[in-house]
């Protein structure tokens, strides 16, 4: 079916609305002004990249964010896969409820998750640390892995695992040689999405972090400083690169997988 002209214009306008602000952020990373954003910028420079890269607090924040995202994603991979396997393979009392509860953190406002976690962490007298941030992020990272793994499990013929056992493989060998390779692309896609979600998370992090600043929180704090404004734009530039590349790759891998 051919789209009407009106629909084309609407679609184009929506795309512009979504992406022009991103372009502005990227563009002003090269702005020579340090406090105000005028249009057009009086001049372009790479100086802010140098300034940003020299700042220790930027590197600390970036490093923390990468570490948190990595650990939260690993935890999500293990827990999400196990949960999906349990929900798929066995019927147990409350199975549907467990499934819903697993999905809930991503549906609930982050502010609810955040305050809930903060109260529990306070109640248990756990000091706020790297690990409390990881726990907070893992709550929603598990969902993406779980969802992807469960969808793949449901598409996987049950006779595959039976065939493997029939040919002499025990449960572990069956998982290693049949189930895991079948899950691989789904897990990869889930993990990349989890990584991207964790990397730029602000709300839950605000509630579960102690003194540490993850990159998004660091950027937020930079906005209150009038000078060196383009530094945040440079940071945004880097964040966009770090998050879009994995998402794009995950999309490519899974869509190729669906065609096969």
């Amino acid at each position: 079916m051919k789209a009407s002209l009106g629909l084309k214009i609407a679609a184009f306008a929506a795309l512009l609305f979504l992406h022009v602000p991103l372009l502005i952020v990227l563009f002003y990373a090269f702005n020579v002004e340090e406090a105000a954003f005028t249009f057009p910028p009086p001049g372009l420079t790479l100086e802010w990249f140098a300034v940003t890269l020299r700042r220790q607090d930027f590197w600390r924040a970036l490093g923390l964010s990468l570490q948190v995202a990595l650990v939260a994603t690993l935890a999500a991979l293990v827990l999400g896969t196990l949960a999906a396997a349990a929900v798929y393979r066995t019927r147990f009392f409350g199975r549907e409820t467990v499934s819903l509860l697993l999905l809930l953190p991503i549906a609930l406002p982050g502010i609810a998750t955040g305050i809930a976690l903060r109260s529990s962490i306070g109640l248990l007298e756990i000091p706020f640390s790297f690990w409390t941030i990881v726990i907070g992020h893992a709550t929603f990272c598990v969902v993406t892995v779980y969802n992807n793994a469960l969808a793949r499990f449901r598409r996987m013929s049950k006779s595959l695992t039976e065939a493997s056992m029939d040919l002499g493989a025990n449960s572990f060998q069956t998982f290693r040689y049949v189930v895991l390779p079948e899950l691989a692309t789904a897990l990869l896609a889930g993990a990349m999405l989890a990584f991207a979600l964790s990397f730029d998370e602000v709300i839950v992090t605000t509630f579960t972090a102690g003194q540490q600043q993850t990159l998004p929180i660091w950027m937020f704090s930079q906005l209150t400083r009038p000078r060196q404004r383009p530094v945040t734009n440079v940071a945004a530039f880097i964040v966009i690169a770090i998050t879009t590349i994995p998402i794009y790759l995950a999309y490519r891998w899974t869509s190729r997988d669906n065609q096969a």
Binding site: S159, E162, S164, M165, D166, N170, V178
Partner: peptide, 28 residues
């Protein structure tokens, strides 16, 4: 369990491992 029985099965849907080629399937 199946892996302790000296029988093998040909499945209705064949249950070939999709990520392996023919040689790896047969040699599994």
């Amino acid at each position: 369990p199946p892996y302790e029985r000296d029988v093998n099965t040909v499945f209705q849907d064949y249950a070939l491992f999709p990520h392996m080629n023919v040689a790896d399937n047969v040699g599994y």
